[in-house]
Nucleic acid binder design. Structure first.
Lengths: 209, 209
DNA sequence: TCCTCATCTGACCGTATGGTCAGGTTTCAC
DNA sequence: GTGAAACCTGACCATACGGTCAGATGAGGA
């Protein structure tokens, strides 16, 4: 974001490193315990510093939480670039699904925190839903509608398609524990590849592609 | 379950009514605030009785929570009867999707509580995942594999199919808030019908049906 | 070197929460 | 009617939590 050219002295570098450690620890704890169940004490321990020091970097629990939620939201928005870069529906939607599956694999905790936030009525990021996410969604829906009008894919409601993609991909993060139990252990590389192929294949076939 | 013939006197009837009120209130509060964020005080107020009385019916917060989670789990298991009753893949899977969509509409809070429980590693219902859900899943997978072997549907991995159905249907409950924001208001009867048709249609087409 | 300001931390505080309990009230079998 | 057991409740307790603060420590510019 603002990784400017300035070599940023020891102080600034250290500050960023500690903030990153805290954010990583917070993401894990919030994902495992929820906002109400998470404690600043536990986050501090996991980040390797005293609780009072944690409050030096993030004044309140809410402020820390908000940063964690913002992070996964931005990651998801970036995944849309795969969608936009492609030319047709098969490539665009396929690449978007692959990207979202990869995020579920790499950032399961972030996905869980977002899911919990939305489930609780988005008390902290309601504004994101109403502004950024809304306009983002409308833009992609317009693209899909155009593809449909051009006869390049089956005529489905773009909103429900979007929701199915989100649901199917994020499920592998949010319900990862359930999946691991039913799978008899963590998904292997091959399992993840099969999951990707399955989700992409099923949805694209559902769109007549 | 055990609505036996006995006319159950005033006392027993009253007890059941109060327990039902408590469970309904608890489901709502746990869904909105999570286990850690929910308070016995708020549940008691919503159920219309003093907190101490709440503890008379449910000794601990955990005990009350467990009953709430068990409830939605049993409702989902019952939805499988639609699957089992049908003859072929199109009717069976289609009816199962419809039933699960209807549950998302009627019991959104229960679905959210379950989702949060699983996201946090199923601390309370791990045993259900390992026993009931596991064998339930294996049974249905066997049916799907047989349909595939008989050439009655496309050869997809039954596990990923199951997960996609769960993900797509439960998304309408768990992410109901996000959906309402993007939809500009609660889903109407027609919206729900469209959602059902869309999810069922997309998945069945994905299976070559 | 020395001064300033960022960084760090143990000890502390007020509050909210889950849970208890003594004692009251209602129900019901006999 | 009456005794026992189920039901109800205000007041209370111990604990855990988010957050504060005074003061120590360290870095860096002049």
């Amino acid at each position: 974001m603002d990784d400017s050219a300035a070599p940023l002295g020891r102080r600034e570098a250290n500050r960023r490193e500690i903030e990153a450690q805290i954010l990583a620890a917070a993401e894990t704890v919030f994902a495992e315990a929820g906002f109400g169940g998470a404690t600043m004490q536990l986050i501090a321990e996991m980040a390797g510093l005293p609780k009072a020091n944690l409050h030096y970097y993030f004044p309140t629990k809410e402020a820390l939480y908000r940063r964690v939620v913002e992070r996964i939201f931005l990651i998801w928005l970036e995944a849309a670039e795969h969608f936009d870069a492609a030319e047709g529906p098969a490539a665009g939607i396929g690449a978007y699904i692959d990207a979202k599956m990869e995020i579920s694999r790499r950032h399961p905790s972030g996905s869980k925190v977002w899911a919990a936030e939305v489930m609780h009525g988005a008390p902290v990021v309601q504004d994101y839903l109403e502004t950024t996410l809304r306009s983002w969604t409308e833009d992609r829906q317009a693209v899909i509608r155009r593809w449909i009008a051009e006869g390049r894919m089956a005529p489905v409601d773009p909103r429900h398609l979007m929701w199915m993609i989100w649901a199917a991909t994020q499920h592998y993060a949010d319900f990862g524990h359930q999946i691991e139990v039913l799978n008899g252990g963590p998904l292997s590389d091959a399992d993840w590849q099969a999951a990707k192929d399955s989700v992409r294949g099923m949805i694209l076939r559902g769109l007549g592609l």
